[in-house]
Design a protein around this nucleic acid. Structure first.
Lengths: 107, 107
DNA sequence: GCACGGTACCACGCAATGCACAGTAGTGGA
DNA sequence: TCCACTACTGTGCATTGCGTGGTACCGTGC
């Protein structure tokens, strides 16, 4: 099974999850996701997802200068974003439970 | 979150899971998946997935006449299919655990 | 000074896949 | 006769993750 397909529709949730605790910029979100275990996430996927969530009105954004490189575009969850996070988490948990039962959970 | 996107790459596993226990034909697999909790699976998705798995050499197929309607095309797991099921299950479990930790498991 | 690697972001186009929709066809009941 | 249910197929679309390449800034080592 190609792990990249598993991310479909879940990367949104993953990004919201890491932003939920602390604002972050693209490159940072990428690192945090990989550290969390999503080793194969592509950078373009993360930037794309951030833009998508921003355009959907779930994130706010502000630019901060850095002395270690180019400017950083920070993203932060707003209220709709937090709500979406809660909803998506519920959807995910329910879906994951269904799938685990289907394949026969052996935990 | 659109639940349909969650199925991406997982429908294969779900179909393998229901066929693992008993051979089935498309319409039947569809009903079994919906009964298992995947309420929104489209019929075309299931037929398409069955064809894809068959073309990938993971399923065998045979036709059986029915007295309640048209002929039924049964599918069955073969050895590669069973192996794929085991691999995909591992991938899924690992992925699901990672995601659950990310969103903060509240079980 | 300059090449190089790490940081940071973006645009373009592709590929996979679930789905809607339409079509074909058999069976049986109102 | 019409309709609902069963059963399968084909076409085309939308979403979305990713590969690739490009821009640009910074510090280090030569």
């Amino acid at each position: 099974m190609d792990p990249s397909q598993l991310l479909k529709g879940v990367l949104d949730l993953a990004v919201l999850a890491v932003l939920r605790e602390e604002d972050g910029y693209g490159y940072d979100v990428l690192r945090r996701l990989r550290k969390a275990g999503l080793d194969d996430v592509g950078d373009a996927s993360v930037y794309g997802t951030l833009r998508r969530l921003y355009n959907a009105g779930l994130l706010t954004s502000y630019v901060v200068a850095s002395d270690e490189g180019p400017n950083r575009k920070y993203y932060a969850l707003n209220e709709p974003g937090r709500q979406r996070f809660r909803e998506s988490t519920d959807t995910w948990n329910s879906f994951a439970r269904t799938m685990s039962e289907l394949v026969g959970e052996t935990r």
